[in-house]
Design a protein around this nucleic acid. Sequence first.
DNA 1: TAGATTGTTAATCGATTAACAATC
DNA 2: TAGATTGTTAATCGATTAACAATC
Lengths: 216, 216
Amino acid sequence: MFRRVRTESVPAPTIRRMPTYLNCLLHMQAKGMTAISSSTIASMLSLTGIQVRKDLAWVSDSGKPRTGFPIDRLINDIKSFLGYNNVREAVLIGVGHLGGAFLHYSGFKEYGLAISAAYDINPDLIAKYKDSEVPVYNINEIEKHKLPELAILTVPHDQAQATAEKLAQLGVKAIWNFSTVHLNLNDAVIVENVDLAQSLALLWNQYELKRLNANG
Amino acid sequence: MFRRVRTESVPAPTIRRMPTYLNCLLHMQAKGMTAISSSTIASMLSLTGIQVRKDLAWVSDSGKPRTGFPIDRLINDIKSFLGYNNVREAVLIGVGHLGGAFLHYSGFKEYGLAISAAYDINPDLIAKYKDSEVPVYNINEIEKHKLPELAILTVPHDQAQATAEKLAQLGVKAIWNFSTVHLNLNDAVIVENVDLAQSLALLWNQYELKRLNANG
DNA sequence: TAGATTGTTAATCGATTAACAATC
DNA sequence: TAGATTGTTAATCGATTAACAATC
């Protein structure tokens, strides 16, 4: 297991590509491969070998001239970098359509993420998940509980800022924000936004560009 | 309505920020404001005035010295850029947890996106949405239907590539890919990936960095 | 050894930031 | 008019790509 002494921090684009590399490697591992070169990875992911090598150098020193990267070890190095080898607990705030889907979604545990409890303000939704494996509490009770440092925020946009402030007050250190609202919080709290509209905007822009080019 | 003659294309980071600007402006509009300066927008979104001005220059020429940007017109210019003023039809492929949430989600229509039909391979899921407003068909029937050019792909990862190939064959030009698989398709098809693991990786990295700094 | 593939150092490219002239 | 705020042109910063030496 490789751990770089982090004087510089890993570039954000590199971090974003890591789960993609991991996925690709798991696929090749399942196929029985034991080693792979950067250029093979690159061609599978529509990248360049240089970029793959530079990215992987941040998290692993397992690359060997001639043979490339040993898949098992590289997978472990990436998982370790991404924190998948430890379990991180999180609370889920809001169990509407999206939050409800997360409550059922078993995939998070592959990312080392475990939802320990969920909260909502709506008694109907709380009742709906009465028999859920993850307990769903009324948000009024949240102050009675010891919270983990990570929260997943899936509340309607008009409640996002107020809820986030309360979470920060209760000791939450990082918020995975699925509302479209930009949260204004103390710098001590890390916020990562997931906004589908951003992704859709990129898709649409490319689509239109291609259409315009095609039609002269 | 402003339309730049696109010789250069809009930078991706700029495109990604557009929905955030729009959201902020809608908020201020609801509060009764009629004009706003780039630096006010910037302070609300933790950006700089310069960046906001440069971004907005791509989609609007409504900025005026002394008074800033007229909110109504700017909103319209951004909506127009993002394609929210027209309706784009899309098919939804896969109605599991995430796809099911999308089927109910009314928010897409604000983005000018309308799900015209959904498909799945699982008869139980098809039956579950028997009375859904959006019809859910068996994917075996998909070839009988005329498809729109946009597809939302929410199938399990082991079916993603094959399904995408079929969609491409049937004339789909753009795929919004929620599976974690990198799709290898003809260049004619645009693919935009949404991978929660990428976002989680960024969150986690920041969290760890801060923790390491705090603990010396 | 020879040669494929790595990691590093330098060059390029693009986005952000700074400086400032234009203008309502 | 004076001054606040815009848009533009230049400088900086960071990521990607290229060139190449190191090495198994």
